[in-house]
Design a protein around this nucleic acid. Structure first.
Lengths: 184, 184
DNA sequence: CCAGAGGTGAACAGATCGGTAAATGTTGAG
DNA sequence: CTCAACATTTACCGATCTGTTCACCTCTGG
């Protein structure tokens, strides 16, 4: 299987898992929707869990790339970027097919802390907060670590409520709280 | 089946769904762990989804009762109660078997907005925010509605991060943000 | 032309899924 | 004691689950 085909397989599997959930999406459906036979899939991924891990790696990379780039496009100071994150989130909430955070859902469906999927989901959040902390440091925040963690809480809360309420309002609400935090 | 037995069935099913997830918990396991035969279960709940709805009703009632009572015990002003919510959350995060919010997980596993389970999960959040808004009004907040929504974001973010990180830190971090909001 | 690599569909394990049928307790009221 | 109403056990249904096997197809390099 070429690198392209493999990437395409992971990309399409991502959409299926994102839309239907992990347990609720069978490998027969993955094979059918990707156009790759189950035999081939299992030649490249020993188990369903390994495919899910590959999907999460793709999601981690593409989501972080998208979010960080969008933050840079929307503002040119570190402080402005942290605030602009919530504008970027609002754009995401408005997208067709927005269904919440894939990593929160992965963590919810694979709760065992020893599970590689659970660990990888939290690793994504740690990478986000690390970036926030770097920006907070550049912005000369009093306590960059604490500020980054607080912004993470706001971001996750906004995503969860946006997904559950099927509205985008949470982005603005979270942004107004972030405004308080960054004003100091 | 007596009311006691029925309540006990729902209570034990709740633990199973909470610990293992909804899709990942089969009705055979529910029957085995509750000691109630599958035949009997299906005499009282037409489908698995109906059992899940009953479980969510129990969870909604008992969680709200617990949270609101704890908030009252920890503070005697409306403003203090809203802040004390995060101390109550920290207690919850420290409990053995804490696995995040059951309603977030229900919403993640049943994403269809037309699904009764999805609707009921969000209804729980609306009831919480209504209570927050009532307290915010009593506390004479400038914009009780907005404040209640912001506190909800903080609460949900804290729960998600506490569950994913397997630590309790998020409660204090959220509380310090809430402190900013309530100081105004 | 041929060997080998890699792909395919289809059938197949063996387990489990949600849900049901029928026969066998068990129990309490008259 | 008797009978009706209930609960239970046991087996079963068809569908689906993850994962494998197998016979076949197709392409490529030598």
């Amino acid at each position: 299987m070429s690198q392209n085909k493999r990437a395409e397989l992971i990309r399409k599997a991502l959409l299926l898992f994102y839309r239907n959930g992990f347990h609720a999406t069978g490998m027969d459906l993955v094979a059918k929707e990707t156009g790759v036979s189950k035999t081939s899939i299992y030649k490249h991924f020993r188990t369903k869990d390994e495919l899910i891990l590959a999907v999460l790696r793709l999601r981690d990379e593409s989501f972080r790339n998208w979010l960080f780039r969008r933050m840079e496009e929307l503002a040119d100071t570190p402080q402005g970027q942290l605030l602009a994150m919530f504008d970027a989130l609002e754009e995401w909430f408005l997208e067709d097919g927005f269904q919440g955070c894939m990593f929160i859902k992965a963590s919810a469906e694979f709760q065992d802390p020893n599970d590689a999927i659970n660990a990888q989901a939290y690793a994504h959040k740690r990478m986000l907060v690390d970036h926030f902390e770097a920006l907070a440091t550049q912005a000369k925040a009093d306590d960059p670590h604490a500020l980054a963690r607080q912004l993470l809480l706001l971001k996750e809360g906004a995503i969860v409520i946006a997904a559950m309420s099927h509205t985008k309002d949470a982005a603005r609400e979270a942004k107004s709280v972030a405004n308080h935090l960054l004003a100091n």
